[in-house]
Simulated assay, not measured.
Amino acid sequence: MTVQLPSEIVVERFLPTARSMLAAALAARGFAQREIADRLGVSQAAVSQYLAGERRDEPRFVDDPRMQATVERIADGFDDGTMDDYEALAELLDLVRAFEDRGPICAIHEEEMPALEGMGCDLCVRGRDQSMQAERDVLANVRRAVRRFSNASVVANHVPNVGTNVAMALPSASDETDIAAVPGRIHAMRGGVNVPANPEFGASHHVATTLLAATTADSAVRGAVNVATSDALLSAVPDDVAVDSFDPEYEGRRARLDEAFESGVPRVLYHEGAFGIEPITYVLGTSAVDAVEHAIAFIERLDEPGNAPD
C-alpha cells in the first residue's frame, strides 16, 4: 500500500491542472505568455507547454464545474483588475478545501490509498478521532456482511428485482449519511449475486429509512438487509422470532415505521408490495453481519423438512 498525503495530490495534479486552465483562460483574454508566467509564478517555457497541451491535465479537475467557474472568475478578475494575487490564492485554497471533502481530490486519494475507500476523506478533513474509528468499524462490518451474503449459495433466488442492500448505522445515526450500504445495491446474476462496489455512507435510501426508524426506536438495532418477500420465506421464520408487517407506500413511510416501532422493533419486517412497489422483507440485527446471518439462516430453513413450499 502506498502512503500518500492529500497535499501531494494538490501539488502533483491539482496545481498543474489549475495553472494550465488559467494559462488558457488568460491567453483567451489576450494576455501575453510573459504576463501569464508572471501571474502563475512559472517560467514562460512552462506557459508555452501549457498552451500547447504538452502537459497532462487531470480530467476530474478539468471537467468539474466548480473548477471551471473558479478559473473563469480568477481570469476575469485579472483581466479587469478587480482581483489581485492574494484574492486569487484565496479562491484556489477554497476550491482545494472543497475538493478534499468528498470531492475529486478525495476520490483520487482513495484510488491511491484503498484503505480510505468509503471514508469520504474524513481522515484528511476532520482528523483522527473516535467518530472516524466508528465509521471504519461500521464499514468493515458491512464489508464482512456483504462477503457472507455473496458467498451464500442459497440467497440468489431471494434477491428482489430492485436489488438487495446490506446496511449498518453509526451509533446515534440521524440521517442517511450515517448509514453505510452498497452503492448500486446487490443484484442476482447467473445463479449468484453481483456486488458492484464497496460500502459507503449515504449509499442507501429505502433500507436506510427502515434502519433509521429501527435504530431510533432501539439503539441496539443497527444492521439490516432486505430480501424478496415470499410466503415460503415468512413461513421459515421460527415461531419465537418477532415478525411484523407494514404499509409499503413510500409517502409518509418513516412516520408509519416510527409509529409501528413504538411497541418494539421486530427481527423481521415485511410488506406485500403495492402498485410499482416490489414486496420486500427486512431482516434487522445488532449489526450488518448479525442481520445477514439471520437472513441466511431463515433462507436455509426452507430446505428443511416441513418448511419447503408446496
Rank of each mutant, 00 (worst) to 15 (best):
M1K: 03
P6W: 07
S7C: 06
S7Q: 09
V10G: 11
V10R: 14
V11L: 14
R13F: 13
F14K: 15
F14N: 12
L15N: 03
M21T: 10
M21N: 05
A24T: 11
L26E: 01
Q33L: 01
A37W: 12
L40Q: 14
L40S: 11
L40G: 09
V42C: 10
S43E: 04
Y50I: 15
L51W: 02
A52S: 10
D57A: 09
P59G: 14
R60W: 01
F61V: 05
V62R: 13
D64Y: 13
R66M: 04
M67S: 12
M67L: 03
A69K: 13
R73Y: 06
R73D: 13
R73N: 08
D76F: 04
G77E: 15
F78S: 14
D79A: 15
G81K: 06
Y86K: 10
A90C: 15
L92K: 05
F99I: 13
D101Y: 08
R102H: 02
G103M: 01
I108Q: 02
E111G: 00
E111M: 09
E112R: 04
M113R: 02
G120K: 03
D122G: 01
V125R: 09
R128P: 05
Q130A: 13
R136Y: 15
R136I: 15
L139R: 12
A140L: 01
V142R: 05
A145E: 02
A145M: 02
A152E: 07
A156M: 07
V159G: 06
N161R: 09
G163Q: 06
T164E: 04
T164S: 14
V166M: 04
V166T: 07
A167S: 14
L170W: 08
P171Q: 00
A173P: 01
D175E: 09
E176D: 01
T177S: 13
I179D: 00
A180C: 06
A180I: 01
V182L: 02
V182T: 07
P183I: 00
R185P: 11
I186G: 01
H187Q: 08
R190H: 15
G191A: 08
V193W: 00
V195D: 07
V195M: 13
A197N: 11
A197W: 10
N198V: 08
F201A: 00
G202D: 08
A203E: 05
T209Q: 10
L211I: 02
L211W: 07
D218V: 00
A220S: 14
R222H: 00
A224V: 04
V225T: 05
N226L: 01
S235V: 00
V237I: 10
P238G: 13
D239F: 11
V241E: 13
V243F: 05
F246V: 05
G252D: 12
R254T: 14
A255P: 00
D258P: 00
G264Q: 11
G264F: 03
P266G: 10
R267S: 08
H271S: 01
A274W: 15
F275M: 01
I277A: 07
E278F: 08
P279H: 14
A288R: 03
D290W: 08
H294D: 15
A297S: 15
I299G: 11
E304D: 14
E304M: 12
P305L: 14
D310T: 12
